[in-house]
């Protein structure tokens, strides 16, 4: 296994980390929609504002967890990538 394989695996990891974060950023669309709807209902029914707010926080955290998964995958790919370490080990032999 030569230097080409190491370069290829490195390139693949960095590219896919970027794609993962970009795709995870799409969760912002869902979060924006949740916030918009929550604000609208808070304005139309101020009595329910506290209930709406706590439910919104919980649902926002659930939406955000998909973005967090993407971030986690990207971080593992960048900083402690098991496949990259294995390839480097093989190339060193």
């Amino acid at each position: 296994m030569g230097i080409d394989a190491v370069a290829l695996v490195g390139l693949g990891s960095v590219l896919s980390a970027g794609i993962a974060v970009g795709m995870g950023g799409l969760a912002a669309l869902g979060e924006g929609k949740a916030a918009q709807q929550a604000l609208a209902s808070m304005v139309s029914q101020p009595d329910m504002a506290n209930d709406v707010r706590s439910t919104m926080f919980v649902s926002m955290a659930m939406i955000e967890s998909t973005a967090i998964y993407a971030l986690l995958v990207a971080m593992i790919l960048l900083f402690s990538n098991p496949i990259f370490n294995k390839v480097v080990e093989l190339a060193a032999q």
């Binding site: 967890s65 967090i68 971030l71 971080m75």
Partner: peptide, 12 residues
């Protein structure tokens, strides 16, 4: 998801 969410947020 309960475990990964908390870990991901604090670690990130």
């Amino acid at each position: 998801s309960l475990a990964i969410r908390l870990y991901g947020n604090v670690m990130s």
